[in-house]
Design a protein around this nucleic acid. Structure first.
Lengths: 218, 218
DNA sequence: AAACATAATGACCACTTGGTCATCATAATA
DNA sequence: TATTATGATGACCAAGTGGTCATTATGTTT
């Protein structure tokens, strides 16, 4: 699904990379529909026809960009998933991994933001689900495990907890990127400030989730 | 700012309303940039030139629609703000008011969603801030008051709390509207189910905010 | 009824869009 | 060197965009 043409795969990988980068940037700036093939080829200094020799059409180009994004996202999440340790440490690791991802691949993250509520974007739901495949596939098992271990209260509704954790983490990342969503000073915060904020957030979360006799603050 | 022309204001108010409705629908479906004046006038059965007799241009038309949206939002929030009672009751009232608003004005809410991350939308930030002027202007004072009254732990970072409450409420509303964001069965839930979910959420929130000797569950 | 003011109209404009395809350049094969 | 296959090219297309404006239609005053 959304395969490039053989022509593209035969290209030197540096040129493939350059094209991927240029396309990402355009989609990140404009979303799917407003993105302009004209601008992409202009930026690359290639003929318009060429891009249609590489990809069947705009859909396939976008599809390729975003499956690349999914690959990157999975690379980031895989190691966390298999990590052992306390649940709340994993939460912290996850959100920091999110920040790292954004720093490394800002265009990909912006594409995600842009298409969140955009309509008729090819493969959108698949993309959204993959980028924050936290919500059920990732967070929920972690919560279950933590509950079994007694890290989390027994009567907590894990489905609700996963939903809310996802909502909060998502917003934290958004505020890291977009100043007008930030009211806690997280926007482009440095390592130190970031740790401070996340720890502060974890206290907020723990008091809602942690067993009183298990992990209490003070 | 973003005033319609006198011509529009001279129109019979039913026609004004019809135009407002048609424009809202189009902007809700397509966001700002992809919205088409052609489709709007087609839907209304009026000539294209007419709309430019009513509004200077697309920007002003959109500006008028969204200031109308702000007016509606303020109408909903005003009464809650002045209500007396426990903080967590107010929270519940607020989110239910949010749901009611969405039910009554689905287009306006969809416009908000569509332009959240859209670029170069005239007046976007003002709109976003107004629709969920929760975050600082609304939630924070409520939290402060609640803290003074002893409803909320003294050492809670209110700024953080407001930020997270806003994030969770926002997501709840989004999931109410969009099935693919829903993992807790809130999507278009009926009154009863809704109450159940909100109460469940409040438990989650309280255990993070409520004083132990003040409001404890069981 | 005549004169004037205002509103509605839609053909038209310049521009941008995604996409096509005959043509040309390049490279590999014979 | 001659032949064949493949890649790159950009003029071109139909469709859609926001916006204009001379003209027509509709009321309102004299």
């Amino acid at each position: 699904m959304f395969q490039p043409q053989k022509t593209f795969l035969a290209l030197p990988s540096t040129k493939q990379q350059r094209l991927l980068e240029a396309a990402s940037e355009e989609f990140a700036q404009a979303g799917y529909h407003r993105a302009s093939i004209n601008r992409i080829v202009e930026r690359l200094g290639i003929a318009k026809g060429s891009i249609y020799q590489y990809f069947r059409n705009k859909e396939h180009l976008f599809g390729y960009v975003f499956s690349y994004g999914i690959k990157l996202a999975k690379q980031v999440l895989k190691p966390i998933e298999t990590t052992q340790g306390p649940f709340f440490d994993k939460l912290k690791t996850s959100i920091k991994a999110g920040i790292e991802f954004i720093k490394k691949h800002p265009f990909i993250y912006h594409i995600y933001l842009k298409i969140l509520f955009e309509e008729k974007v090819p493969g959108r739901e698949r993309f959204i689900q993959a980028v924050r495949f936290y919500s059920r596939e990732y967070l929920f098992p972690l919560l279950e495990e933590a509950q079994k271990k007694g890290e989390i209260k027994e009567d907590i509704d894990l489905e609700m907890a996963a939903f809310m954790l996802d909502a909060m983490m998502d917003r934290l990342l958004q505020a890291y990127v977009l100043p007008y969503l930030d009211s806690i000073g997280i926007h482009q915060a440095d390592e130190k400030k970031l740790d401070e904020i996340i720890d502060n957030w974890l206290i907020f979360v723990k008091r809602g989730l942690a067993n009183n006799h298990f992990a209490s603050e003070r």
